[in-house]
């Protein structure tokens, strides 16, 4: 009896696969296709992103040895990409230093030399004439950016105008840092807000959050002639940024953490800019804060800028 019941079973298996097997096979195919699609970017990385770069840890989690490896890799990549020898260093904040910047609106003539110096110092894209500083030509009588013009191109200063350079205000309460979903940007001990370009995912939340329009997005990799690249570079500041990441003014930390003045200050022909250590009571910046009529931009937002504007009597 048992032998009678077996042949039909055997026959049904011979017919092929049943509905369940077909579904399984279909699902497996879909799964494979999805996986292939999912890992497709990995094959693309090889062209512009090394495995080391992909696996690189957050700046703050890098051990000293690992950081040196990263810096060496970046220097090697600079040679490959631009054919130029650069020195990329990790400049750390110094104890007892908190940077402050002040700008005298009575003296500024709107010559944009600061923006130009920033452009060169910080290895900005040449084609777009990018800079961390935007100089506004403002109507006298108030601070109304609606009436301000950052694209003026005529002899300066005009009699009925004043000029207001705006760059990162290095806020004590930085909205750009709060909104970053991956903590790729943070405020350092000396007050400078920095970006780990290798951790940034380019979501541009910070750009939207900044009330001073101080952050820029790299729509493409900056293009700079090899001989014009500033070889003195900082990991957190002026190294040539990859495409698709945010960047911002760092008070030239690759200079200022070595004790040098920022590039924009050195370029200022009128001496409208004052830079220094807020914690040093003998510093020039402290003298300005204590003796001049000083204000901060958009104070009502509670961002507590460390960039101050002042004017003479």
């Amino acid at each position: 009896m048992s032998t009678d019941s077996k042949p039909p079973k055997h026959d049904s298996g011979k017919i092929g696969f049943d509905r369940r097997t077909a579904l399984k096979g279909g699902a497996a195919m879909l799964g494979m296709a999805a996986l292939a699609k999912a890992i497709a970017p990995i094959t693309e990385w090889t062209s512009d992103m090394s495995v080391d770069e992909f696996l690189q840890k957050h700046y703050k989690e890098l051990k000293p040895g690992e950081l040196q490896t990263v810096l060496a890799r970046l220097e090697r990549e600079a040679v490959e990409d631009h054919g130029v020898d650069v020195s990329i260093n990790d400049y750390r904040p110094k104890e007892g230093v908190k940077f402050g910047y002040a700008l005298n609106l009575s003296i500024c003539i709107g010559c944009r030399k600061c923006a130009e110096a920033c452009h060169i110092e910080n290895n900005h894209d040449r084609e777009t004439n990018q800079s961390y500083i935007r100089v506004f030509e403002m109507e006298k009588g108030g601070i109304d950016f609606e009436k301000g013009d950052a694209n003026y191109n005529h002899p300066v200063p005009q009699k009925d105008k004043f000029y207001m350079p705006v760059q990162c205000q290095q806020c004590e309460n930085p909205p750009c840092v709060h909104v970053c979903p991956v903590e790729a940007t943070w405020k350092e001990q000396d007050g400078i807000v920095v970006v780990d370009y290798n951790w940034c995912i380019g979501c541009r939340y910070c750009e939207a959050a900044c009330p001073y329009h101080a952050r820029r997005f790299n729509w493409k990799k900056p293009e700079i002639p090899s001989q014009d690249i500033n070889p003195d570079q900082g990991y957190l500041s002026n190294r040539v940024r990859p495409a698709g990441v945010m960047e911002k003014c760092t008070f030239c930390l690759h200079r200022t953490r070595k004790g040098k003045l920022p590039a924009c200050l050195e370029a200022c022909p009128t001496g409208a800019r004052v830079f220094g250590n807020l914690l040093d009571p003998e510093s020039e910046i402290r003298w300005v804060l204590e003796n001049k009529r000083v204000f901060v931009l958009k104070e009502e937002l509670g961002t507590k800028p460390q960039f101050f504007y002042f004017f003479d009597e």
């Binding site: 004790g259 040098k260 001496g271 004052v274 250590n277 020039e284």
Partner: peptide, 16 residues
């Protein structure tokens, strides 16, 4: 008091 006139070099004169 260092708030008029252009300058170059070091903000921290202990370094340069």
């Amino acid at each position: 008091n260092g708030s008029h006139g252009g300058m170059t070099g070091y903000w921290d004169t202990t370094l340069g």
